[in-house]
Design a protein around this nucleic acid. Sequence first.
DNA 1: AATTTAGTTCTATTACTCTTGAACTAAACG
DNA 2: CGTTTAGTTCAAGAGTAATAGAACTAAATT
Lengths: 160, 160
Amino acid sequence: MPKQDQPAPEAHLEAKVEQLGIAFEKLGMSPINARVMGFLLLAEPPYKDFYEIRDFLGASKSSISLALNHLMNQGIIDYLTFRGDRRRYFRINTDNWLQKLKQQTLETGSMRLLLEEVLEARTASEYPEFGEGLQEIVEFQEFIAQGIELMVRKWEERGV
Amino acid sequence: MPKQDQPAPEAHLEAKVEQLGIAFEKLGMSPINARVMGFLLLAEPPYKDFYEIRDFLGASKSSISLALNHLMNQGIIDYLTFRGDRRRYFRINTDNWLQKLKQQTLETGSMRLLLEEVLEARTASEYPEFGEGLQEIVEFQEFIAQGIELMVRKWEERGV
DNA sequence: AATTTAGTTCTATTACTCTTGAACTAAACG
DNA sequence: CGTTTAGTTCAAGAGTAATAGAACTAAATT
């Protein structure tokens, strides 16, 4: 049962943050980290201080501290400050995040290297059909990886 | 401490299966599932029955049963049988596996859809720079996703 | 018909990750 | 100099996923 039946202005935002949070969980984030992402993506202004985040998400200080530091280590978020205000305002750093997404994209097909080792170990096998199947997988991943590399280069040259 | 100081013929294989297993764990598999993959990739012949797998990995029957069924549901492995022999011989099905890898490759940049929703919610924001940063991420993912789609099509037309 | 084989299923245990509460710190403030 | 602020750290609790053990089943074998 949600906390309030009288839909407050934030009720909709809360629901959206939860929904986005679930989506980020599916991409591998822990529940709280995912919700911090959701909140910082949807919040207006798109930067919020420690206690705003904690209050909005209804989580503990330690959880928020760990989540913010984890996301900062990953380079997805950073913070800004304002003179005369000790608080840090955390925000998603879209440049670093894009940088990270590029790297991850380039890692597509990283299994290729593993399978190449397997193929080497299997050169003397009595069952070459299996090796041929693996070879095709390696070739697919090579094909895609090369294409992605090219595309990421192209993207980086765009609008220079 | 490893089980034997006298390196048996399988000692090297055991180490390789563990090493491959760790690599598959990093790709998201559970420890035992990852090791089943490692074993079936390196085993000669490349198909093994339930008890061979259990004995080689030193795991319980229930763990092996769950692992094999899970990998079968994913379509990564299947089994073959031989007349007059009740056992099923499990093996990696390279065709299905490649099929699965293709699908996964096409899912690269699935976050795009999420961010498009966020952008829509932010159209009236006082902080358009943030929206522009998100927009660039969306565009990157669109660019890559389209390229990958094209490449997968190309791959499928190869050698027809 | 009784037994063996080739697994499966269910419950319990273990291991690990996530989250919290409470105590703590370092800088700033009054 | 004592207090508030803005967090951090650490030990512990809760929750979840992985594995194991033991009982079970269905088909085949004797």
